[in-house]
Design a protein around this nucleic acid. Sequence first.
RNA 1: GCCGUUGUAGCUCAGUGGUAGAGCACUUCCUUGGUAAGGAAGAGGUCAAGAGUUCAAUUCUCUUCAACGGCUCCA
Length: 642
Amino acid sequence: MIKITLPDGAVREYREGTSSLEIAKSISEGLARKIIAASVNGEVWDATRPIQTDASLKLLTWNDPEGKSTFWHSTAHLMAEAVESIFPGVKFWVGPAVENGFYYDMDLGDRQITEEDLRKLEVKMAELAAKQNPYIRTSISKADAIHFFQEKGDEYKLDLLEHLQDGEITFYSQGSFTDLCRGPHIPDTGFIKALKLTNIAGAYWKGDEKNKQLTRIYGVSFPSKKELDEYLLMLEEAKKRDHRKLGKEMGIYTTDDEVGQGLILWMPNGTIIIEELEKLAKETEQAAGYHRVVTPHIAKESLYLTSGHLPYYQESMYPPMELDGTKYYLKSMNCPHHHKIFAAEPRSYKELPLRLAEYGTCYRYEQSGELFGLMRVRCLHMNDAHIYCSKEDFAQEFRSVNEMYLKYFKIFGIDKYVMRLSLHDPANLGKKYINEPQLWLETEAMVRKALLESNTPFVEVTGEGAFYGPKIDVQIWSAIGREFTLATNQVDFAQGRRFKLEYTNRENQPETPLIIHRAPLGTHERFIGFLLEHYAGKFPLWLAPQQVKVLPISDKYMEYAQTVLESLKNADIRAAIDDRSEKIGKKIRDTELARVPFMLIIGEKEMDAKQVSVRRQGKGDLGAQELDSFIKELKTEIKLRS
RNA sequence: GCCGUUGUAGCUCAGUGGUAGAGCACUUCCUUGGUAAGGAAGAGGUCAAGAGUUCAAUUCUCUUCAACGGCUCCA
């Protein structure tokens, strides 16, 4: 007999070789029907796999993250079975579960797959699922596994096998399909009651663009039709929040073929938001001891040779323009220009930390397929600053920058983000990263220490650093779930030396400063794209392009409405009047849909009492009040940025 | 850049081998109405651009451009 410990601490005895599914059945038949997999001593197993020793057991259902991923991974196998039946000879690479479903990468040879094929595959999959074929696990020797895939002529699976040890290789079969797989899987295909193949994409083998491109099919599946419908509804809702849709609808920005891809034209409403953000940044930076500077958009080649941009970052830069035999580049980062401002005068330790700030315009030649609304563009305006400081000051400066982030995030109500410590990849030294292995490690340790000391939760990722040093990125997700770096805080040990930047220390010796690059508000483009989605277009009063709309009930009150508008404008409130000869209900509806925070309704009552009736977007009628007190309240709300 | 899909009025979308429609928005007129859609008329399109097939192309084919979903890459 073996002892099974359940999550509530209860210990039950079973005979050796009892499966999790059988244990579930012994507890309740209803429970057993929902069991997808089981966590046995912390490892996710098939629910049907016999347990031979004492173990702690957690039964996993659709509601557990591991349950979902097992479910999706099994659906990937089901899809592979369907693909193989329709496209014989197909070779598979890997088919994992992802955040919202699964995919399988495959080599279809010369054949192409279309949307129509996806519909056919869905039908086939539903058919196969209904057969309730069990997923059968078998252990196999490496030699036999190699033999199996050699027979099949499948070089991809043979490649996978190379990295596996004999004795740890398992196959899974369901119906007519057998795959090399570590598992685990759901008990049988009948669990899959609803599914949708969402899209076809090319994906480079092993994620390397030099390799052959495989066909990737994405899909998602559910234990019931209801859940699929809910998922599809959720996708529809997310689309409504998409900054590209809102940005167009609200007159925030536009693009034009003749101007160029990824080059944003900010319309008047978007420009208002830009100006409000810059005002916030200027106030905040002035209080934190920054100095504002302004630098040109282009510079000579030699500047970027010194900075390291040309050796390490050239593929992201626009090609040069040549004038009188000299090459000029559009700047992709502001740092070299700021370094030259530092270098323009002899510096003393007394001036440090020196903080130079600029909402700098940068141009980056992003590959066309990478462009994405406002989130990924080719001309961007960065909330940039460079802090030149001594080693001793570093930790304090670094913490202050992090505090500034949190201050901003509080203003915008940003609470869903992840701080990521982005490190270099030693394999790419001298290619993507400046070749200073020792300095990389030292600096990374320094940043990690500063993070730990300030109790900031973070994750570490290798291969995401800047070419000149490690960074802390603040990761956010767009409405459609794509991940972006919103803000960044970087340490640069390289450019100070490359530019021979120096200050005179207390001992009257020249010393190279450390440089912190920081952009807490990221770029206007990405930040406003994010804010559009974050607020679903309903900006807080201080950011709203239009703050108040005056709605006269009929033309008779237009004159009084005009005086109300004048008073609002005199108080620097962004207001307009709806002078169409429409009924008040229509004016209210249109203004609500335009997401204007306040409406002032002006009729006979208001005119006689010299008042305004206030209506707040999304909240409805707030009653009548004196115009002066309304303006005063508005000004307070704007000032507090609440 | 690569794989796949798409491109018809300002927006959302129908449609066809014989050169085009709807709703909303817009303009004008009627209406002057009290908290989410009053009525009527009108204007608006080289059907993304170029080439080919055809008596005839917005429709079929090819190329280019752009957008979208991914891959790679990044703020």
